[in-house]
Nucleic acid binder design. Structure first.
Lengths: 231, 231
DNA sequence: CTTGACTGCCTTACGGCGTAAGTCTACCTT
DNA sequence: AAGGTAGACTTACGCCGTAAGGCAGTCAAG
């Protein structure tokens, strides 16, 4: 049987490779979230055994690093196709388009922002992405110092997402009103007032929890406008 | 021996409680990072067994939820002591002080931002914090709609941190120049130029990686100014 | 004073995880 | 043909979260 298995691999299964491992990881995460990516499941989805993966990646951390790199590379390819002027006042439109393009790609992988943020070393592809953004700012007349602060001010927004802390009404959306929350509401007058007025309930929240596209763009433009004024 | 152990508990060890469990978890995380918090280690640090914890918390997720709540409660106590005017144009100073106070407390627990962001349900204490911030904005003349957008624009900055994606020169800071990075540098002209000019190397990075206090405040003020202009 | 329920804690055990160590086999080089 | 090598597999270890059940101390009702 072990022989049979082995010859089957040789006959039909494409060889393992770092790239195939990473792409399989992305596929699994797309289906079951990042927690579903385990070395065993990853191997299984490739028709191999867990330990075989270690011939192509050093450990699981490197799988996650690689996944970030693959997605960031996709982003770089997409933003590389943007042809917008960047000189002078045009910088803002170019930066905006670049960031929203990155966001569009990240929207395909809802688990990705958390993984991007969990990496302690920055992927080369992400560095390339940032380099391009800094280049746009320099074209726009930013000093290196302002460009630096701008990157900090943007934070994860530079890559097209903002992790939201605030998720009113999440959970499995049971019909029954949570009594704890009801009691809580009395102590949250401003929040309750705000939400009751503002909740144009859009169930298609996107990246992060309540991180709707319009909200993302509002925050982004707020920052880009502020930067332009300091240019 | 099992009898001895048991009577020893009755004689000397303070009883377990949800609160003691959460405080022990914070202590362990402060020492060894959040990954060091396991149910077994947590129990051990309390002189108990892992399964005993389950009489006071439903599961590990609830431990993390509770930890966030404890820290957010501390923050609420601190910001509750702030006595600054909030009406009209004064809103900005009040909001700024509130946020920087939260930040000061979070700086004591460097692992905390990631845990705050990992929670899928928002802690009551965090909601209270947000409610206060929204209240300040309302006092400042914000519409509910603008206050809502403002909270989105601030994102995690509302609580005093911004997860930075960008960490030039992290890793175990080996003296030897990384040949991979050296080769990479040629393809990152803007980034390398910017950093060589800007790197007033401050080893006391604070929350996140490169998230220095001055950078945080720059980004925060950028947003607060932008909001004030739209008031 | 007994009894029986309750509470808080412990013991044992299970399945899953990442991965260290060692083995086998197909293939390439010489 | 001989020997080395790369890529896959097998086994096993020590963690993890937690399900299930048991046992001692407490305390109220009879």
């Amino acid at each position: 049987m072990s022989l049979a298995t082995r010859t089957r691999r040789t006959e039909s299964r494409p060889a393992l490779s770092r790239d195939r491992v990473l792409r399989a990881a992305i596929e699994i995460a797309d289906e079951g979230g990042i927690a579903a990516v385990t070395m065993r499941r990853l191997a299984e989805s490739l028709g191999a055994e867990a330990m075989s993966l270690y011939h192509h990646v050093a450990n699981k951390e490197q799988v996650l690093d690689g996944v970030v790199d693959v997605i960031a590379t996709e982003i770089n390819e997409a933003v590389g196709r943007i042809t917008l002027p960047t000189r002078g006042a045009a910088w803002q439109g170019a930066a905006r388009e670049r960031i929203l393009t990155a966001r569009r790609l990240l929207l395909r992988h809802r688990w990705a922002p958390a993984v991007f943020e969990s990496r302690t070393t920055t992927s080369p592809a992400v560095l390339l992405y940032y380099d391009g953004l800094v280049g746009i700012m320099r074209d726009g007349g930013f000093s290196n110092d302002l460009a630096h602060r701008a990157m900090h001010a943007l934070g994860s927004r530079a890559l097209g997402f903002s992790q939201e802390l605030f998720s009113p009404g999440d959970g499995p959306t049971t019909g029954e009103p949570d009594p704890v929350m009801a009691a809580m509401a009395a102590r949250l007058p401003h929040l309750v007032g705000m939400l009751s007025e503002v909740m144009h309930v859009d169930p298609d929240a996107t990246l992060g929890w309540c991180d709707e596209q319009a909200e993302f763009e509002f925050g982004l433009d707020l920052i880009l406008d502020g930067l332009d004024r300091r240019r």
